[in-house]
Amino acid sequence: MTSPFIRRACAIVTLLTLTTSSALAHATLEVKQASPNSSYKAIMRIGHGCGESPTLKVRIRIPEGYINVKPMPKAGWTLETVRGPYAKTFGTEHAKLSEGVREVIWTGRLLDAHYDEFIMTGTLAGDLEAGSTLYFPTVQECETGFNRWIEIPAAGKPADDYKSPAPGLKIIAPNR
């Protein structure tokens, strides 16, 4: 028989582990909500390697509706982009955009013991619906193994139900 105290202590410890791990153990976006038709600076936080193996590559798939993306170079990291057509043409104040960056790849080295951020800016298209979520599937390639933060939660299921959820950006109605 376990005493109620031990049981409660266990529950608290488990809860703490869970809450901290959801912040640290995943690839996450620092800013988790934004409005349509605004600029958005995506800061992808990588908290650990693949197990203890250092990260050698970070690849981010740009979601449909996040346009005119420009990644920020990082010292010590090689930056590559993959350009491609958008599913549809977006009209901005300045021009019509039918293609742009679809994938950003940073190649370098990040120890499991260290933390880093990978940054890009861009614009959220005007026709994104408030309440929807944009997912930034992210693949972390390590010296040994992969982490694929690419699981997109099924409707009605929280991202916490998944082992490696894709980082998400909630679209909210603009403040007027």
Binding site: R59, E103, P137, V139, R148, I150, E151, I152, A154
Partner: peptide, 12 residues
């Protein structure tokens, strides 16, 4: 079932 369709797409 987790099916990895491409690097960024997983179907469950």
């Amino acid at each position: 079932l987790d099916l990895l369709i491409d690097d960024f797409t997983k179907v469950i």
